[in-house]
Design a binder for these strands. Sequence first.
DNA 1: GAAGTGACTTGTGAAAAGAAAGCCACTGCT
DNA 2: AGCAGTGGCTTTCTTTTCACAAGTCACTTC
Lengths: 160, 160
Amino acid sequence: MAIDAYADKNCSIAKPLSFLGERWTLLVLRDLFLGRRRFDQFQESLGVATNVLSQRLATLTEEGIVERRRYSEHPERFEYVLTEKGRDLQPVLLALLAWGDRYTAEKGPPLEVVHGDHSFHAVQVCSECGEPIDTHNVHSRPGPGADEEQRRRQPAWLGR
Amino acid sequence: MAIDAYADKNCSIAKPLSFLGERWTLLVLRDLFLGRRRFDQFQESLGVATNVLSQRLATLTEEGIVERRRYSEHPERFEYVLTEKGRDLQPVLLALLAWGDRYTAEKGPPLEVVHGDHSFHAVQVCSECGEPIDTHNVHSRPGPGADEEQRRRQPAWLGR
DNA sequence: GAAGTGACTTGTGAAAAGAAAGCCACTGCT
DNA sequence: AGCAGTGGCTTTCTTTTCACAAGTCACTTC
C-alpha cells in the first residue's frame, strides 16, 4: 500500500502523493468534504470496487487523515470523519476545483463553494506579504531539509 | 489512457484528476515547474519507467498542459514546456507543497518557494472578499453545471 | 570506428485495480 | 419463525496498469 517510489523522495510534494496519489483517494477525500462518511456512501458515489475502497480508507486512517469511528456497537458500524490533518488538505481540493471549473466545466461549475453569502473560488496569496501569487513572481531554493544533491542542483520554479 | 471512471463524472475535481491522478503525472508537473523540460531529466529525477513516462508526456500534451517543442532538427529532439493552462496548475502544487512541508518535512522543507526576497507558503483567500478561507467558513451548493442528481442531493462542505 | 546522447518503443512479468460473490451481525417486516 | 435488507467489509478471479530490461534510430563527440 501507498506508493513507495514516491515516499522515498525528499520532497514535500511527493510524500503527500505517496498516499494521496493512489487512484480514488482524492475523490474519497472530496466526498469527505462533501459530508459523506460511510462506506456505502463512498462506494455509491464513486463506483469504486469495494476492496479498493476499504484499502484506501485503511490507508487514510493510518495516515491520520480520517478517524474511523464506531457509531454503533450492536451491530458494529463505522464511519469515517476527517481529522484536522485531513481538513488541512482543503486547499489542495479547492485549488483543483478552481482549475477544473475554469478548464473543464463547459456548462458552468457543477458545484459552487460558498463563503458567507457569496460563491467564490480559491485564490492564493503569499503568507508573508499577502500579495497574490502568480506564475512569474515565484522561484525556489533549497530549504533546511534539502539533501546534498538538492543543494547542488540550482532549483528553479518555472525555468527561472 | 487517462482514468475514464473519473472523466465521466460531472465534477471539477474528478475531471482534472482523470489525467493528473495517474501515477507520476503530478511529479512530472512538479519537475516542469522546477525547470526540467527534457525526457531524460524527468526520467533521472523520478526513476519512472520510460514507457510510462512517454505515455504521461503524451497525455499531458494532448490535454494542453505542456507543449512538445522541437529544439533540434537533425537529429530530432524534443522538449516539453508548460502552457498557460499548465502553469495555472501552480496553486495545486503549492497547496500540496504547503501541506507536505507542514506534515511530512521533519527536518524542515527540502525546497523553499520564494516570493520577491522572502520565502513563503501559499495561503488561500476568497476571490470575492479577500478573507482567508479556513475549514469552517466554507459550504457548498449546486452550481449552474449541476445535473439533476446533484441538485437533489444537498451538498455540504464538511458536514455543513 | 567506438562510445555516447536523447527520445523514445517493444516485450515480458509483477502488481494493482475491477467485477462479482459471499459473509456476518444484526433490524424490521410478514 | 422465516426471509429480505443493511452496512461494512473479505475473498476470488480477471483485466489493466506498471515496472524492468533491452533495443532502436539518427545523429555527435572522442
